[in-house]
Design a protein around this nucleic acid. Structure first.
Length: 271
DNA sequence: AATAACACCTGTGTGC
DNA sequence: TGCACACAGGTGTTAT
């Protein structure tokens, strides 16, 4: 479900219900996520949520005592619900609030994470080595040229490498490369400045557009209010292997790159 | 150091 | 209808 736009849409959706609210309980029904969910009820109950931030695809729920770090993995979702909402399958965690609502974490595949960090989260091992945020100014052409200078892998793999830039998953890597006219298998350090300048712009554009449209709903993504995203209607290549290119009509090719399905137009995307 | 493969897990769709 | 299999939005860990 979630790439950066979906995580950001989730953040925007839950934040108003959380900020300035006191935590009244933490209920962990299944602590078997990607890493064991720590029992931090003692630390967090009674705390007031100060902010809900995002770094890469991690959501950071701040209190004065520490920060809850949430990752949605492949299939996770967060909803704000009335406290008495019946528990459904894969509803693993509830964070109960003084306003009578709960933040409920559901994750069928359990690749997600719910962690606790008392230090500045930048020091956390999961966050300390992350590259720049794609929508911030520090992600620009000169940065990318430098970051790719020793990379002989395919550009798509680099785009999905969190040390190069965070938040670009399989959907938006495919889309940004199509929009830039760059072949996904192009060797990263052979792309010239003009190409990379365009790529940076298209990464920003495709992510910003997806956030604006509420994210991409493929199967069951909904925001915190239960509304789907509409970006799927905008996809040019993702999930369209064998169909015709929106730009030239050529049939879109489908290959595997780093075990991930990669779709591109052999005519529009040249090396 | 960079790169590639593997691991975690459930649900869904396809083909027999 | 049942079954085996491939595949899915991610990413840390291990092996090459």
């Amino acid at each position: 479900m979630p790439e950066l736009p979906e995580v950001e849409v989730t953040r925007q959706g839950i934040s108003p219900y959380l900020v300035e609210q006191q935590v009244t309980a933490l209920v962990v029904r299944n602590s078997s996520l990607r890493w064991p969910v720590p029992d931090i009820a003692q630390q967090i109950v009674g705390q007031t949520i100060r902010d809900v931030r995002r770094r890469a695809k991690y959501l950071l729920i701040d209190t004065d005592a520490g920060t809850t770090i949430v990752h949605l993995g492949m299939s996770g979702s967060l909803r704000v619900l009335p406290r008495n909402t019946p528990v459904e399958k894969h509803d693993h965690i509830d964070l109960e609030l003084a306003n009578g609502r709960i933040l409920r974490f559901n994750d069928p595949r359990r690749f997600g994470a719910w962690l606790w960090c008392e230090l500045p989260e930048a020091a956390h091992p999961l966050l300390s080595k992350l590259g720049p945020e794609p929508l911030e100014e520090c992600f620009n052409a000169s940065y990318l040229i430098q970051a790719l200078s020793n990379k002989k892998r395919a550009i798509k793999l680099c785009l999905m490498d969190n040390q190069v830039v965070v938040g670009v998953g399989n959907i938006y890597a495919n889309e940004a490369l199509f929009s830039s006219g760059i072949h996904p298998q192009a060797t990263a350090n052979k792309l010239d400045k003009d190409r990379l300048t365009l790529l940076v712009a298209e990464v920003k554009q495709v992510l910003a557009q997806a956030i604006k449209q509420g994210g991409t709903t493929l199967k069951d993504f909904t925001n915190a209010d239960g509304k789907p995203g509409y970006f799927a209607q905008t996809l040019n290549v993702y999930g369209r292997g064998g169909e015709s290119c929106h730009h030239c009509g050529n049939l879109l090719s489908e290959i595997k790159l780093g075990q991930r399905t990669t779709v591109f137009c052999g005519i529009c995307q040249t090396r």
